[in-house]
């Protein structure tokens, strides 16, 4: 049983996909099975009413981890356990989960009106009855900056950012205790994004909602997070209180990630991408996965995988972290 304020606890969770070519090809080309380790031995704990964020390179396993949390994929190894959240009467119950997907359009049924889409969880979970349903839909739409009259329109009639807000309104309709947000505001311009993020923080303060938050926008992550994990090739390389990591990142990859943020005050028009071989989750390097691109790497890094550990609140997986 997780500690009392823990809503979610993952222990040594892995998710491996079999991406082997068809049997015949394998035989002809004398190749073995190919296993893609999308998530590889990750542990973390999320406290109720806080935001736990995951950042890292595209393809490092963030969405897979999100899908593991909401049960859309099953772990190959390890466990995910949930604490409790109080219901309307304050009695503890299993927390309700909801996910905001990375592809907003793909998650909206094109044949449903916005009203149908946002009202579905209200019907499904019996959160509202009768006329209260329409009223609630209107309320949610205006909360995310859409108009009540948008309820009768179809998803294709909206712009990309408007569609993303429809899926946010739908997620908020569920009144879920734990909201897993995979790039929830990536399609929003700064002004609307500010509005949605301020709304999410407001709801969190009011209802003690918990967020698992994934975003490539580090300014947004900094704004939202209590705790932060930096992920690299399926593993956490640094984790701890968000401010601690932002202020004093110790893992060479985290430092690189935080240093490369484009800034309109001092744009770097000759920005160079990370050099070195792009990591391949099908064929992980033996030691530290970041070693091939790391300027500090030594023989130890190439042979032995560093475990997460460290001083104070922040844990780092690096042989040389200062």
């Amino acid at each position: 049983m997780p500690a009392p304020d823990t809503i979610l606890e993952a222990r040594d969770v892995s998710c491996h996909f079999d991406v082997s070519p068809p049997w015949l090809t394998r035989v002809v080309e004398r190749r073995g099975r190919r296993i893609l380790k999308a998530v590889d031995g990750v542990s973390f704990r999320v406290r109720r009413g806080t935001t736990f964020s995951i950042v890292g390179e595209s393809g490092c396993g963030k969405s897979t981890l999100a899908r593991l949390v909401v049960g859309l994929v099953q772990p190959t190894a390890g466990t995910i356990a949930f604490g409790t959240a109080p219901d309307a009467q304050g009695k503890p119950r299993t927390p309700r989960l909801q996910m905001i997907f990375q592809d907003p359009y793909a998650s909206l049924n094109p044949r449903w009106t916005v009203e149908d889409i946002v009202a579905e969880p209200l019907h499904e979970l019996k959160l509202r009855q009768g006329a209260a349903i329409s009223a609630r839909v209107g309320e949610l739409l205006s909360l995310v900056g859409l108009a009540r009259t948008d309820a009768s329109r179809y998803p294709h009639e909206f712009s990309g950012g408007q569609r993303q807000r429809i899926s946010i309104a739908r997620a908020l309709a569920t009144e879920a205790d734990l909201l897993v947000c995979d790039e929830p505001t990536s399609a929003l311009d700064v002004s609307v994004q500010a509005q949605v993020l301020n709304l999410m923080r407001g709801l969190q303060a009011e209802l003690a909602l918990t967020y698992v938050f994934i975003s490539h926008n580090l300014a947004v992550v900094r704004h939202m997070s209590d705790d932060l994990a930096v992920m690299y090739l399926g593993r956490f390389v640094e984790t701890g209180p968000a401010e601690g990591v932002f202020e004093g990142a110790r893992h060479p990859y985290s430092r690189l990630l935080l240093d490369t943020i484009p800034d309109i005050e001092s744009p770097n028009r000759e920005r160079a991408p990370l050099t070195g071989e792009v990591p391949n989750p099908i064929n992980r390097p033996r030691g530290c996965a970041f070693a091939p691109r790391c300027s500090l790497a030594t023989d130890l890094c190439r042979s032995e995988r560093p475990e997460l550990g460290g001083r104070g609140d922040v844990a780092v997986a690096c042989h040389h972290a200062a």
């Binding site: 390179e57 595209s58 990536s186 490539h216 490369t260 484009p262 991408p273």
Partner: peptide, 11 residues
């Protein structure tokens, strides 16, 4: 580049 981290975005 909305779904990309800064490094790949730079690429």
């Amino acid at each position: 580049t909305t779904a990309l981290d800064v490094s790949i975005q730079a690429q």
